[in-house]
Amino acid sequence: MHKIVVLYPEPADAAAFKEYYESTHLPLAAKLPGLRAMRYSFDVSGDYFAIWEGEFDDAEAAGAAMASPEGQAVQADVPNYATGGAVVLDYPVRVP
Protein backbone atom coordinates (compact mmCIF):
# COMPACT_ATOMS: atom_id res chain seq x y z
CA MET A 1 0.00 0.00 0.00
CA HIS A 2 1.07 3.60 -0.65
CA LYS A 3 -0.25 6.68 1.15
CA ILE A 4 -0.54 10.31 0.23
CA VAL A 5 -1.00 12.56 3.25
CA VAL A 6 -1.83 16.27 3.03
CA LEU A 7 -1.33 18.47 6.09
CA TYR A 8 -2.98 21.88 6.16
CA PRO A 9 -1.71 24.72 8.37
CA GLU A 10 -4.25 27.07 9.94
CA PRO A 11 -6.22 28.90 7.20
CA ALA A 12 -7.24 32.56 7.31
CA ASP A 13 -10.93 31.56 7.63
CA ALA A 14 -11.51 28.15 9.25
CA ALA A 15 -15.25 28.07 8.56
CA ALA A 16 -14.79 28.88 4.87
CA PHE A 17 -12.04 26.22 4.61
CA LYS A 18 -14.29 23.54 6.13
CA GLU A 19 -17.29 24.39 3.98
CA TYR A 20 -15.34 24.48 0.71
CA TYR A 21 -13.25 21.44 1.60
CA GLU A 22 -16.23 19.22 2.37
CA SER A 23 -18.55 20.45 -0.38
CA THR A 24 -16.08 20.93 -3.25
CA HIS A 25 -12.57 19.57 -2.68
CA LEU A 26 -13.34 16.18 -1.14
CA PRO A 27 -15.71 15.23 -3.98
CA LEU A 28 -12.85 16.04 -6.41
CA ALA A 29 -10.42 13.91 -4.41
CA ALA A 30 -12.90 11.01 -4.31
CA LYS A 31 -12.60 10.81 -8.12
CA LEU A 32 -8.85 10.08 -8.08
CA PRO A 33 -8.27 6.94 -10.16
CA GLY A 34 -6.99 4.03 -8.10
CA LEU A 35 -7.91 5.60 -4.76
CA ARG A 36 -8.66 2.70 -2.38
CA ALA A 37 -9.67 4.70 0.69
CA MET A 38 -9.54 8.24 2.00
CA ARG A 39 -10.10 9.91 5.33
CA TYR A 40 -9.72 13.36 6.79
CA SER A 41 -9.96 15.25 10.07
CA PHE A 42 -10.14 18.79 11.37
CA ASP A 43 -9.17 17.61 14.86
CA VAL A 44 -5.40 17.57 14.43
CA SER A 45 -3.05 18.22 17.33
CA GLY A 46 0.13 20.19 16.84
CA ASP A 47 0.81 22.70 14.10
CA TYR A 48 -1.86 21.66 11.61
CA PHE A 49 -5.53 22.50 11.12
CA ALA A 50 -6.54 19.53 8.95
CA ILE A 51 -5.23 16.28 7.48
CA TRP A 52 -6.22 14.13 4.51
CA GLU A 53 -5.02 10.57 3.83
CA GLY A 54 -5.42 8.68 0.57
CA GLU A 55 -4.49 5.02 0.06
CA PHE A 56 -3.35 3.49 -3.22
CA ASP A 57 -2.11 0.04 -4.19
CA ASP A 58 1.45 1.22 -4.78
CA ALA A 59 3.62 4.22 -5.67
CA GLU A 60 2.88 3.81 -9.37
CA ALA A 61 -0.89 3.98 -8.77
CA ALA A 62 -0.48 7.06 -6.56
CA GLY A 63 1.72 8.77 -9.16
CA ALA A 64 -0.69 7.94 -11.97
CA ALA A 65 -3.60 9.28 -9.93
CA MET A 66 -1.89 12.60 -9.30
CA ALA A 67 -0.81 12.89 -12.95
CA SER A 68 -4.33 12.16 -14.22
CA PRO A 69 -6.79 14.93 -15.18
CA GLU A 70 -8.58 14.27 -11.87
CA GLY A 71 -5.31 14.59 -9.95
CA GLN A 72 -4.44 17.80 -11.76
CA ALA A 73 -7.89 19.20 -10.86
CA VAL A 74 -7.38 18.29 -7.19
CA GLN A 75 -3.99 19.99 -7.11
CA ALA A 76 -5.22 23.09 -8.94
CA ASP A 77 -8.11 23.43 -6.46
CA VAL A 78 -5.92 23.69 -3.32
CA PRO A 79 -5.33 27.48 -3.54
CA ASN A 80 -9.11 27.99 -3.61
CA TYR A 81 -9.42 27.11 0.09
CA ALA A 82 -6.00 26.45 1.68
CA THR A 83 -4.83 29.99 2.43
CA GLY A 84 -2.17 28.55 4.75
CA GLY A 85 -0.82 26.27 2.03
CA ALA A 86 -0.47 22.51 2.19
CA VAL A 87 2.27 20.00 2.96
CA VAL A 88 2.12 16.81 0.88
CA LEU A 89 3.80 13.58 1.96
CA ASP A 90 3.75 10.26 0.18
CA TYR A 91 5.26 6.97 1.25
CA PRO A 92 4.97 3.23 1.05
CA VAL A 93 3.29 1.72 4.10
CA ARG A 94 5.34 -0.92 5.88
CA VAL A 95 3.66 -3.45 8.14
CA PRO A 96 5.86 -5.18 10.72
Rank of each mutant, 00 (worst) to 15 (best):
P96H: 13
E22S: 03
R36D: 07
D13G: 02
K18A: 01
P69C: 04
A16L: 05
G63Q: 14
Q72N: 12
P79C: 04
G71A: 05
E22V: 01
A12T: 08
A16C: 02
D13L: 01
W52T: 15
T83G: 03
A29R: 08
E70H: 13
L26T: 11
Y48M: 09
A73R: 12
G63R: 15
G71C: 06
A73H: 11
A76W: 07
A50E: 04
V74T: 10
A73Q: 11
G54A: 15
Y48A: 05
A59K: 11
E10S: 12
L35M: 15
D13K: 00
K31G: 06
A50S: 14
Q72S: 09
D13R: 00
Q75T: 12
R39L: 11
V78F: 03
P27W: 06
I4R: 14
Y91W: 08
Y81P: 02
M66S: 13
Y91E: 05
V87W: 15
G84C: 05
Y91G: 12
Y48G: 01
D43A: 15
L26H: 11
H2K: 11
L89N: 09
F42N: 03
Y21K: 03
Y21H: 03
E10L: 07
E55C: 13
L7C: 13
H25R: 04
D77G: 10
K31I: 06
V88N: 13
V74Y: 08
A14K: 07
E53D: 08
A64V: 03
A64P: 05
H2I: 07
L35P: 15
D57N: 09
V44T: 07
F56M: 03
N80M: 09
L7W: 15
W52K: 11
V78Y: 06
E10H: 14
G84L: 05
D47F: 14
R39Y: 13
A59W: 08
K3G: 11
K31C: 06
R94H: 14
P79T: 04
V95M: 11
E19F: 01
A65R: 11
A73G: 09
G71I: 05
A67Q: 13
M66C: 09
E19P: 00
I51R: 10
V87H: 15
A29H: 07
I4W: 10
Y20K: 00
L26W: 12
K18Y: 01
V74G: 08
Q75K: 15
A50G: 10
E22Q: 02
A86Y: 04
L32F: 10
Y21P: 00
F17C: 02
K3T: 14
V95H: 11
V44R: 08
Y81I: 01
Q75F: 10
D58Y: 09
P9L: 01
V78L: 11
D43P: 11
P11R: 00
P11M: 00
D13C: 00
Y8I: 01
D90S: 15
F56V: 04
G54K: 12
A29K: 07
V87N: 14
A37D: 14
E19Y: 02
L89I: 08
Y20C: 02
Q72D: 06
K31V: 05
V6K: 14
G85Y: 04
P9E: 00
E19N: 02
P11T: 01
P9R: 05
R36M: 10
